[in-house]
Amino acid sequence: MDKERQLIHELLDGELSPEERRDLLDRVNSDPLLKQEFDDLRSVVNMVETAERLTVPPAFTSQVMRRLPAPKVSFWKRVSSFFFGQRVLRWNMVTALATVGLMIIITAGLFQLRNKDTVISYQRPADGAARTVAISFYAPQARKVSLAGDFNKWSTEKGLMKKESSGIWTLEVPLQPGTYHYMFVVDGNVWVTDPNAESYRDDGFGNKNSVLRVSL
């Protein structure tokens, strides 16, 4: 590329001083071939610079945003967001009613299970817990019968028995496993040995105490 043409390009880039520009244009105007080249180049530059610019389709930005990779979140941030992040619960009436129904069923089930537990523990007490022993005595004529034994310090009042219509007096006594001696006290002053006792032992006063064994 010769000097003249290089200057023409510098002029097109606006890099010449006013004097250099005037000198060049004088030379260009005096040379028809150079003038033609200069005009053509100026026209080409003008064409490119004024060429219509395309309008970007409207969805461009939103599409870029949709395609962006998901932000990388640290493990602890994810854990924190899992526990403390706000959530929006979407619901409808059917789901809500079904949920309430399910909760009622579960609650009722738990209550029943607890009651059953009580029954089981009652039937099979843990080691060391008291058994409830039912003791009965047939005395249809008696007005009052009480159960006295070493478990209530031979009290004639504490173990009052309850009379049933058939003439049988009964009492349920909670007892730890072990061996106990007892007698019935009829009408407050008559001491009677249980005729159905499993065994007997002399009481040292000429009578026999009934013996009861409560096993584990």
Binding site: R5, H9, L12, E37
Partner: peptide, 10 residues
């Protein structure tokens, strides 16, 4: 490069 590109485009 730009000078040559303009010439070529012309």
């Amino acid at each position: 490069r730009t000078y040559r590109a303009r010439e070529m485009l012309r």
